[in-house]
Simulated scan of single mutants.
Amino acid sequence: MESDTPFQENCKTLFSNFIEEQNPENPFTAYDEYELLLVDLSRSGLSDHDRKECERDLAMAAKQCGLFQVVNHGVSWEILAKLKSEQEKLFRQPFEKKVNKFLNCYRWGSPAATSLMQFSWSEAFHIPLENIPVLKGFNSSLSTTIAVFAEVASELAKRIAEILAENLGSKTTFFAKNCMASSCYLRMNRYPRCPISSEIYGLVPHTDSDFLTILCQDQVGGLQMVKDGKWVSIKPNPQALIVIIGDLFQAWSNGVYKSIEHRVISNHEGERFSVGYFLCPSNDTVIQGCNENEPCMYRKFSFREYRQQVQEDVKSTGSKVGLSRFLM
């Protein structure tokens, strides 16, 4: 399907000069394909030995990589198939209808971009969980499907977060108390076919600002991450969901768990879809190192303060700066 989103028409200044902006060291060259670390969550329900091994594997993946896969995760393939079907129907609506009908949750491109290297050739629906009931008036099937997925994804995200917290010696109710439906959200993404895919990102390099993300992607490929100082392409796995450690978990764990930079490369042959569930606390939640006996890498900050700083940086520079703003 050809994109009905007018990226080039509405951002003429950026696109008219894209040839002059080309980097002699092309950042879109071919990259090695990398198979993510994979954790089988079914072992957590077996013997005590298997459960502990599973928990150690999760902690190791969060420490070493910050972006890994889980299988036997409890999200049925019926739910995922229905979600993808509803997602595709939503994105195939005319651009003007998406903008006007879903004004508060539809996003596209990068409004703050000052160069093509800051522009994302993608569109998305950013849906706070508390707004899911509102969607019922537009599309009851979509609303019901999103609600079912959000419930199981939330359970999975909190389960993983609690395991990672316990590995740090912190038996805590922090995530259950602070990461409620009123603060978490879903993001449904579409990366349309891009005629200048050798010159532009599908999604610019970034780290996630939440505690952790549960990502469901199709088999098109395009997701990349930084591994050992270089970009690698992540091999799609039809059986797995991807877990991405976010900035808040890196700060809360005092740097033990890693929030890894990742991006999406655009594709000139076809479109790509993904859905992310973001485990976020309330805006007033204070983030500080969970181990009081260790020197903190980052100063205390609220999630509101962090989000405002990110927004200010994107507005002023076109890019996210992130955790480095909060180093001690």
Rank of each mutant, 00 (worst) to 15 (best):
Met1Leu: 10
Ser3Tyr: 01
Pro6Ser: 00
Leu14Gln: 13
Leu14Val: 04
Phe15Met: 06
Phe15Tyr: 06
Ile19Thr: 15
Glu20Asp: 09
Glu21Ala: 12
Asp32Phe: 12
Glu33Pro: 05
Glu35Met: 11
Leu37Lys: 14
Leu37Pro: 14
Asp40Ser: 03
Arg43Ser: 10
Arg43Lys: 11
Ser47Asp: 04
Asp48Phe: 13
Asp50Gly: 03
Glu53Leu: 11
Cys54His: 01
Cys54Asp: 02
Glu55His: 08
Arg56Phe: 14
Leu58Asp: 02
Met60Lys: 12
Gln64Thr: 14
Gln69Ala: 07
Asn72Ser: 07
Gly74Lys: 05
Val75Ser: 00
Ile79Cys: 14
Ile79Gly: 05
Ala81Lys: 15
Ala81Asn: 15
Lys82Leu: 09
Lys82Glu: 15
Glu86Ile: 04
Lys89Val: 12
Leu90Glu: 03
Leu90Val: 01
Phe91Trp: 06
Phe91Met: 05
Gln93Glu: 09
Phe95Ile: 08
Lys97Ile: 14
Lys98Gln: 01
Val99Arg: 10
Asn100Lys: 15
Leu103Glu: 07
Tyr106Asn: 00
Arg107Gly: 09
Gly109Ser: 05
Thr114Asn: 13
Gln118Arg: 02
Phe119Val: 10
Phe119Ala: 11
Phe119Asp: 06
Ser122Cys: 12
Ser122His: 05
Glu123Ile: 07
Val134Asn: 11
Val134Pro: 10
Gly137Val: 01
Phe138Ser: 05
Asn139Gln: 04
Asn139Cys: 08
Ser140Lys: 08
Leu142Ser: 01
Leu142Glu: 01
Ser143Leu: 02
Glu151Tyr: 15
Val152Ala: 06
Glu155Gly: 08
Leu156Ile: 09
Arg159Ser: 13
Ala161Thr: 03
Glu166His: 12
Lys171Leu: 09
Lys171His: 07
Phe175Ser: 11
Ala176Asp: 11
Ala176Thr: 08
Ser183Ile: 00
Ser183Tyr: 00
Leu186Arg: 04
Arg187Lys: 07
Met188Asn: 13
Cys194Phe: 09
Pro195Ala: 05
Ser197Cys: 13
Gly202Asn: 10
Val204Asn: 13
Thr207Gly: 13
Asp210Ile: 05
Leu212Met: 15
Thr213Gln: 03
Gly222Ser: 02
Gln224Asn: 03
Met225Leu: 09
Val226Asn: 04
Lys227Cys: 11
Gly229Asn: 05
Ile234Pro: 03
Pro238Gly: 08
Ile244Cys: 13
Gly246Gln: 00
Phe249Gln: 14
Phe249Ile: 14
Ile260Cys: 08
His262Trp: 02
Arg263Met: 04
Ile265Gly: 07
Ser266Arg: 09
Ser266Trp: 06
Gly270Val: 15
Gly270His: 15
Glu271Asp: 12
Ser274Cys: 03
Gly276Val: 00
Phe278Glu: 01
Leu279His: 07
Ser282Lys: 12
Asp284Gly: 11
Ile287Asp: 03
Glu292Phe: 08
Pro295Gly: 04
Cys296Trp: 14
Arg299Ser: 10
Phe303Ile: 09
Arg304Gln: 15
Val310Ala: 08
Glu312Asp: 15
Val314Trp: 11
Val314Leu: 15
Lys315Pro: 10
Leu323Gln: 01
Phe326Met: 06
